[in-house]
């Protein structure tokens, strides 16, 4: 089963250019319901307000990093099951393992392609939806 194209997605990256790129790619994939935040500190209140069904976040951001945001979300009773995809330039094995342990659902290293983004989103929603692959 594929992901719901109407789901509300939060894209968190401190670089507005990267947020635009991801937003455009998502639009190409049919996802038009996208909101943005520039770091973990601005993302958390948006998440806590509710309604976000998928989180795409960078790691390296001033203020709250993506890893800290990931840990906050997993520690929050209302948000803990939110699917999270990390899209980051952080490429150390140790870091990828740390993100995996913290409960990330997918990990994409920058620079990435439109095909990679589609593949990872599909994979995440196949796994979390009952009856999916």
């Amino acid at each position: 089963m594929a992901a719901d194209k109407k789901m509300k997605i939060l894209v968190v990256d401190d670089f507005s250019t990267m947020r635009r790129i991801i937003k455009n790619l998502l639009r190409d994939l049919g996802y038009n319901n996208v909101v943005e935040a520039d770091d973990g500190n601005t993302a958390l209140p948006i998440l806590q307000k509710g309604g976000i069904e998928f989180l795409i976040t960078d790691w390296n951001m001033p203020g709250m990093t993506g890893l800290e945001l990931l840990k906050h979300v997993r520690a929050d009773a209302n948000l803990k099951d939110l699917p999270i995809l990390m899209v980051t330039a952080e490429a150390k094995r140790e870091q990828i393992m740390e993100a995996a342990q913290a409960g990330v659902n997918g990990y994409i290293v920058k620079p990435f392609t439109a095909a990679t983004l589609r593949e990872k989103i599909d994979k995440i929603f196949e796994r979390i939806q009952p009856g999916g692959g």
Partner: peptide
């Protein structure tokens, strides 16, 4: 490492850095 290192550059071609997706 906690804050994030930023992108790897060709000089970072050590074993602890992945080379791609």
């Amino acid at each position: 490492m906690r804050r994030g290192e930023g992108p790897a550059t060709p000089s970072d071609s050590s074993d602890d850095v992945v080379s791609g997706q």
